[in-house]
Amino acid sequence: MSAAGAGPRHAPGRQSLLDRARAAAAAVVDPELPVLTLLDLGVLRDVEVADDGAVVVAITPTYSGCPAMGAMRDDLLRELRAAGLPDARVRVALEPAWTTDWITPAGRAALAEAGISPPGAAPRRSGPVPLRLGPPRRAVRCPRCGSGDTEVTSEFGSTACKALYRCRACREPFDHVKEI
């Protein structure tokens, strides 16, 4: 955030503007998982400078009904403004659809550190989506005690992106970011 406070009237070059915008956008954290940034979550898709000189940030929803999109937009615009970049827009990138595979290694480490089990590899398919009538087959380790002896409580949790698990070793419940 070293560029914070330098206003646009200093007329920086395009690359410098882009660098400042990227640094500012990269610092914004997810409103529902504040232990990781939008960049680490893979929600921040692009930062560019448009022909009219405005900073344009592209974000993608994790789930179609993600209620945090508005908060993300406001946080991004506020952070850009604080970095001296008030001329900014946020656009939605619907395609390609968000996948948990975009969560960075740093993001996964931050999740685990916060007691949230990070996702495994997202399913890759060609052909029809197979029906699964049994419990999900995932190797999930308890983020507290490290045991692999865990069981799913529910595939739906406190936010759209998480499933509920419980550790049979230490008996603690925990969240798992489910693969999509």
Binding site: M1, A4, A27, P34, E79, A82
Partner: peptide
């Protein structure tokens, strides 16, 4: 404040 989004009380 200039770096507000990391403040714990933001939301």
């Amino acid at each position: 404040r200039t770096t507000r989004t990391r403040e714990p009380d933001e939301h």
